[in-house]
Design a protein around this nucleic acid. Structure first.
Lengths: 213, 213
DNA sequence: CATGAACCTGAGGGAGCCCTCAACTTTGTA
DNA sequence: TACAAAGTTGAGGGCTCCCTCAGGTTCATG
């Protein structure tokens, strides 16, 4: 759109870029609840300037995450193109968590550990739509267990998020092992009845809307 | 031991009991990082009195958790007595997470989301020793996949902790579904090679010792 | 250049939580 | 009952992070 808002002054544009770069780093390292002062400091800018450009923390998220989430879209496209539905499903899942593992902020965002603005939520929904297709395809092929639902993918994300956070500093590859176990449980051949219904869309929405404790 | 420390004065003993009861409630509801002022308030006692009895947050943990963890010991005993090693393993695991689900503080403690005092850590170790036996037994019987290691149980705990935390308010049984999927991946028949080594004891120790980000 | 608009700055007030300590109150004992 | 020891109180100082805004600085334009 680029509405009639006149272009930023040169110094302002420079500061904005620095702030975004710093925010990207800081959020990736320390999570989405990192102090904004740290971001301003790393950008070489005062806290007031940060608030000039991004009046709310969310505004930083808005500027940072949509492009990063686009990577996920690409991974999903590729996964859907895989002739083998299971291996597409598994590959996307691995790609997703590989991103989590290198970006703690993305981890926080997708695990919904922080209230997010509509634009990031929308990007999550787009991503979720891909997941639904990947799940449906893998179920139709008979490779993914029939009682797995797309909403169960949320639980997978919560699970792996925590594993990744705990192990990131010490054994940054161990999450792959854990994911391997988990995926083995999702194969059709492994299925034993679970006996508990999955999250309804309403329940999932309520969890997503809830403040992070 | 009950060393020569003389008994508490009546009012002091009463306050101590109230504080422990309040702490039990508050930690169970809000997690181990709940404000101590809330505990004092709920106990009907001033914050100074809380600090008199429990100079550090850890001292509250010490008084609260060992008895609660004893429940785990009992569950483990029972699981070891199960003639079917797999069903013992699975039953213990379910019992463990059922406790997590009703006590957020225990969840935090076992998921190591908070630095813990030696006594609680020791109780965790005792629990972990049981887990090792349950794992070994289930592997020997050929029901638990051979490449599962006791250290992998930590990842299971991290996983489920997060799922339980996220869903507790909205769908308090859904964790069972997720656990079902996970357990299906741990059955010997489901195993596909994972290709990543498990956590070494040293790595696990470092994670446990690390401050919670 | 000069000038006004755009932008930046950082001290400072607010909020939540931590923990301490001097003054006060209660208890148990003689 | 009287008194010392034990226990309680809550205001207050410290910390970290939030966010604002009056005053100073820099840029773009004529």
């Amino acid at each position: 759109m680029t509405t009639g808002t006149r272009p930023l002054r040169a110094d302002a544009a420079r500061n904005r870029d620095r702030l975004l770069a710093a925010a990207g780093e800081v959020f990736a390292e320390r999570g989405l609840d990192a102090p904004l002062e740290e971001i301003a400091r790393r950008a070489g800018v005062s806290i007031g300037t940060l608030y000039n450009h991004f009046p709310a923390r969310d505004d930083l998220f808005d500027a940072i995450f949509p492009p990063r989430m686009a990577v996920l879209d690409a991974a999903a496209q590729e996964a859907l193109a895989d002739p083998d539905p299971w291996s597409g499903f598994a590959a996307f899942t691995e790609a997703l968590f590989a991103l989590h593992a290198e970006d703690r902020g993305l981890n926080d965002a997708l695990a919904q550990r922080v209230p997010l603005s509509p634009e990031v939520v929308e990007a999550c929904h787009r991503c979720f739509a891909y997941i639904e297709r990947l799940v449906a395809r893998a179920k139709e092929s008979g490779q993914l267990r029939a009682d797995f639902e797309a909403a169960d993918y949320a639980a997978l994300i919560w699970s792996m998020s925590q594993v990744i956070r705990e192990t990131a500093g010490v054994a940054p590859q161990v999450w792959r092992r854990c994911l391997g176990f988990f995926l083995d449980g999702l194969r059709a051949g492994a299925a034993h009845p679970v006996g508990v219904p999955g999250l309804t869309p309403e329940q999932l929405a309520r969890i997503m809307a809830a403040p992070p404790a």
